[in-house]
């Protein structure tokens, strides 16, 4: 097994691409980690589905206000200039194209930009939350994920086998091995770990990687 990025390193890499002044929604769980790695000097305004813009870090234990939570039901704080609003306004921000970046996790991403991240199929209680809304409307929809499943199977595929969250919605995938943009319904390799060849990366990817004139090295500090 080749070396791969940790989840924190994947989150770090995704954070570097968030521009100054961006309005950003981070999905519940792993994507929330991206906030930790915001580059110094950049202002990022975080949106949460349940009606807050510009929330900050978690409060110290014991100082939580449980009416001040994010979509993951975790206690948060407010930055100066924060705003509250109701759910219809919140999703107007989402679907109306006002968010700059949404970052989500994935079970599968297809080369067409299709995303499957809400259901592993029958037998469980289905729950979708805001994911189906978030994949439509944000100017960039980025996925952060391990490159392969726990069994070693590709998560980047020709077409998703699991129930879809959205069609043709993903713009960039940050994986444990590479950064891949989705352009014209194909995986365009932007960066890869320098320790891997394109052929090795292709072998763990379920659809063709388009390799342009330049593929940069994916170099991430220990975080």
């Amino acid at each position: 097994m080749t070396a791969k990025l940790t989840n924190a390193q994947i989150a770090w890499r995704a954070a570097q691409d968030i521009p100054d002044g961006a309005y950003v929604n981070l999905g519940i769980g792993f994507p929330e980690m991206v906030a930790k790695f915001k580059p110094d000097g950049r202002e990022v305004i975080y949106h949460t589905e349940n009606g807050i813009l510009d929330f900050g870090e978690a409060p110290p234990a014991g100082e939580e206000d449980w009416d001040l939570i994010n979509a993951g039901k975790k206690a948060v704080t407010l930055n100066p200039g924060a705003a509250f609003f109701h759910h219809a306004d919140s999703f107007a921000m989402v679907r109306g194209g006002h968010l700059d970046v949404a970052i989500l996790g994935a079970y599968e991403v297809a080369e067409t930009g299709d995303l499957a991240n809400w259901s592993t199929g029958p037998g469980s209680v289905p729950a979708v939350g805001g994911a189906m809304d978030l994949v439509h409307g944000a100017k960039r929809v980025a996925v952060i994920t391990d490159h392969v499943t726990k069994k070693g199977e590709p998560k980047l595929v020709k077409s998703c086998s699991l129930p879809l969250t959205g069609v043709g919605c993903v713009t960039t995938v940050y994986t444990s091995l590479a950064v891949i943009d989705i352009v014209d319904r194909r995986f365009l390799l932007r960066e890869k770990l320098p320790s891997m060849s394109v052929e090795e990366l292709q072998a763990v990817t379920g659809a063709e990687l388009v390799v342009g004139d330049t593929v940069a090295d994916l170099i991430v500090p220990e975080v």
Partner: peptide, 24 residues
């Protein structure tokens, strides 16, 4: 979906019987 739930309720209160959304 959460945004559709919010908008369906908003529509119900606003007298709008149906609407179109990209969601889902």
């Amino acid at each position: 979906p959460q945004g559709t739930l919010a908008e369906r309720i908003r529509a119900g209160g606003a007298g709008i019987p149906a609407f179109y959304t990209p969601t889902s």
